[in-house]
Design a protein around this nucleic acid. Sequence first.
DNA 1: ATGAAAGCGCTAACAG
DNA 2: CTGTTAGCGCTTTCAT
Lengths: 365, 365
Amino acid sequence: MYPESNVNDNVMRGTDVRYTLKQLAAELNVSSMTVSRALRGQKGVGEETRTRIREFARQVQYSPNLAARSLVSRRSHALGIIIPNLRHSFWLDMVLGVERVARSASYHVILTHADDDPALERGEIITLVSRRVDALLIASCAPDHNADFLREVESSGVPVLLFDRYGDAMSTPGVYADDYGGAQIAVHHLASLGYTRIAHLAGDLQFSPARDRLAGYRDAVRDLHRPEIVVEAGFGEENGYRGMHRLLDDNGANAVFVVHDPSAIGALHAALDRGLRVPEDIAIVGFANMECAAHVAVPLTTISQPRQELGEALASLALQRIRGEPVAQTRLVLPTHLVVRRSCGAYLLAAGTSVSNHRSKGEEP
Amino acid sequence: MYPESNVNDNVMRGTDVRYTLKQLAAELNVSSMTVSRALRGQKGVGEETRTRIREFARQVQYSPNLAARSLVSRRSHALGIIIPNLRHSFWLDMVLGVERVARSASYHVILTHADDDPALERGEIITLVSRRVDALLIASCAPDHNADFLREVESSGVPVLLFDRYGDAMSTPGVYADDYGGAQIAVHHLASLGYTRIAHLAGDLQFSPARDRLAGYRDAVRDLHRPEIVVEAGFGEENGYRGMHRLLDDNGANAVFVVHDPSAIGALHAALDRGLRVPEDIAIVGFANMECAAHVAVPLTTISQPRQELGEALASLALQRIRGEPVAQTRLVLPTHLVVRRSCGAYLLAAGTSVSNHRSKGEEP
DNA sequence: ATGAAAGCGCTAACAG
DNA sequence: CTGTTAGCGCTTTCAT
């Protein structure tokens, strides 16, 4: 044995292309702890050593193995979020909000969706739990179906946050738009425009937003001493189309508050197909302020939810719970507001208002 | 020391709520290897033992720690995908295709997006590499900006797959829609309808699809001996609106092939705002078959890409490369097709065709 | 069919 | 300021 022989021979890089902390340490003649500390910006490393280490790490493109890191630190520094599907920008805008807050706390967001399938959703929950996300944010596509399961997740130590919709038996903390209040705004707006027979095309009542919007509608028309005219149409363009036909068959409604923009678009087409003019013969107000609502044959007046803010509030709540901070209110409800376009007839009253634009002033940029 | 003392005392469950393999094994009086094998469906475990283990694991809600697993197995069993943004359903439909194939191979998909910001994109690449995804699928929001970086990723051992758009210097394998062919289809369709002066509103030429669509347009009008009329408009509704105005200021075009549906919608509004009738005065064909294209004032004829199939092909390619299988062609190009609605004027020729529907027959369900 | 040993890459906790 | 030790939860490899 030669006195000069390098004791680090055994940590020389093998065939693998990627450096490990240990290998970095060996080549830099420091311990892996020093490298670890230097790279994570922890104190306890000399300025000179730190720059030396960082420089070298950059050169060799060191990339820490997050699996190893979270295995030992018992934190994944990741928020898992499950949305019902990828079809509505509402969810994706919320995700943007979540990401913004997460990023500012150096958290990652793992985005998954259930493709509107409760079984797939369960699978995604399981996956995220296996990935050991530090919190699970979910708008369930079947709020009651996986409720027990979510409770078990919560009681296994992962904070679970609901959003947009809540289950019956669920008292989990969560963040929601003010569906009830939004419905009231819609009805009062129509009433203020002079409509007397204001109907409601309701959504699938298994979802809390549909229930809350219905409740808001009911309370509003009661307060206004107007008749209550409700047709359970369901979500989606087709259901809205059919529901509107049923409504127009039976009742003398001259205005409709529809539970959701896609249904409202279906309703609009049903009215137009019957030769009715919108809003002259029947006014329509939707809910959600979806992008297409502005582009439709008669641009849709609708209720807008603060999507990004919802996401931000959701992430903040999650972060609080992760940190073990006490959360003030467990159910956060954010206000909704009216976006006036043409389908409600407001422009008919606004004398001198140009109606040549395909967009109203009420719309956000 | 009592002879009966349990040597497994030290593996009793602590304050942590979650079982580990070792704890399961202790309570079942088997080794953790047997549990591991039983749970993963590996052979080498008695039928009886296996059911016993599985049953117990289910009862206590055992959830394997994927971080630990991938740390030792050196496979994350995850595909990382980066899309430019969450704003266009095109990307999300592709993701659906990717997920379908991934799922059938028990792979997870980690979905991230760059929010159209090259710097954020770089961050996402780094994160996914740190997560040790088994392959990285990316449609870069700045194909040239991060090209070098991606090459380094590739050479560090992670298969990188491009899609939708390719960089200049990049010869990375990838999957693309036939932009060139789609443009030709659009032009030939307009020509077959009798339009003689067919213009093109081009997109931002830093993106390969914009370049390829322009090339397809050029070759088509040349072959047809028609004049080449090109305005570089750019992507997005605003750019389409402005570009169309510029086009209409100068040239006597009676038909326009627009690089992308949003631009086409802007163009449509520009034409309408000038008091032109679409398609009677000027015909429009878009590209992408976006949802709103069907809902717009004059439903848009457009070129449709096979989104899910693109995603499926992409994932298959990725899986092949992960398995080390030789990939036949490194650049896969999938065909596009025409969706006829009203903006091209085809319905004007089709005698007897009802035009009362807001949707054409050409549209998918 | 089952188990023991070793270690993946990293960091917490404690030395010095 | 730096290093040593131990071990996160799992699977690979080799024994039995």
